[in-house]
Amino acid sequence: MNQTIHTLNPWLLAGMVSSMIAGLLHLGCVAFGASWYRFLGAGEDMARMVAAGRLLPHVITLAVALILFGWAAYALAAAGQPLPLPRIRWVVLAITAIYFLRGGAGFLIDAPQSGRSQAFWWWSSSICLAIGALHAIGLRQVWHLL
């Protein structure tokens, strides 16, 4: 009996879990309202719109959550889980680049003018850079397999 143990790339699995957590936090904003938007740093304008019953913040937040869940699926596919997704190598490369761009750009933003705190930009940018690094390391390891 031939039992092959297939291991998934741990770096891309960590990237997948990170994107899933980020997506779930966005869903938490929609489910729990203005206090979550404030706590997670969406800015006072978004929190006020939610408190006023406007749907636009929820639509934007749901769109971001869906994107993050899609990115998690691509990271899982690149990690070695067979999923019927097109162009896995190039999509994960693009996802990695977006995480790095978002992470780097956040350090350049004028916090007071953006409506968000400097702490929000520092933490969210650091997290994006870390998630980008997880993807980059994992993608480098599996590039030849994709």
Rank of each mutant, 00 (worst) to 15 (best):
S18W: 03
A75T: 02
F100E: 06
G115C: 05
G115D: 04
G41W: 01
I5T: 13
I67Y: 14
I137Q: 09
L85M: 07
F107P: 03
W11Y: 15
H6F: 13
G132S: 09
A51K: 14
N9H: 10
V64P: 01
I95A: 03
V30G: 04
R89C: 07
R54V: 01
I137C: 07
L134M: 15
R38L: 13
T7N: 13
S126F: 13
E44R: 11
H26E: 01
D45K: 11
G70N: 10
H144R: 14
H26M: 00
N9C: 08
A78W: 00
G115L: 05
A22F: 14
W11R: 11
R38Y: 03
I109H: 05
G132T: 03
A94T: 05
V91W: 05
A111W: 06
A119I: 13
P82E: 10
G115Q: 06
G43V: 02
A31S: 12
A22Q: 09
Y74E: 03
G106K: 08
R38S: 14
W123E: 05
L40Y: 08
R89I: 03
R87I: 11
A111N: 05
D110H: 14
G28I: 00
G23H: 01
H135F: 15
S114R: 04
M46V: 13
L27P: 01
F69T: 01
I95M: 08
R54T: 02
L24V: 15
Q141A: 14
L25P: 02
F32I: 01
I95N: 02
H144V: 07
A65E: 05
A119D: 10
V92N: 09
L55E: 09
L27M: 15
S124K: 09
W36C: 08
A77M: 09
V17D: 07
V92T: 15
V142G: 09
L62Q: 10
L76P: 02
L68V: 00
L145Y: 09
T7L: 14
G41Q: 06
T4V: 12
S125P: 07
A31N: 07
R116Q: 14
N2T: 10
A14P: 03
L8S: 08
W122Y: 11
W11D: 14
I127R: 06
T61D: 11
M16G: 14
H58K: 12
L76C: 12
Y99T: 00
T61S: 10
A52L: 08
A78G: 10
W143P: 05
I137M: 13
L146E: 13
L85E: 05
A105E: 07
I5C: 03
G138R: 10
C128G: 03
A63W: 07
W11P: 02
A105K: 06
A79L: 08
I137R: 14
L66N: 08
P86K: 07
A73D: 06
A97S: 04
V59G: 06
C29I: 13
V91K: 01
G23C: 04
S18E: 04
A94W: 01
G104N: 08
F120N: 09
R89M: 06
I88Y: 08
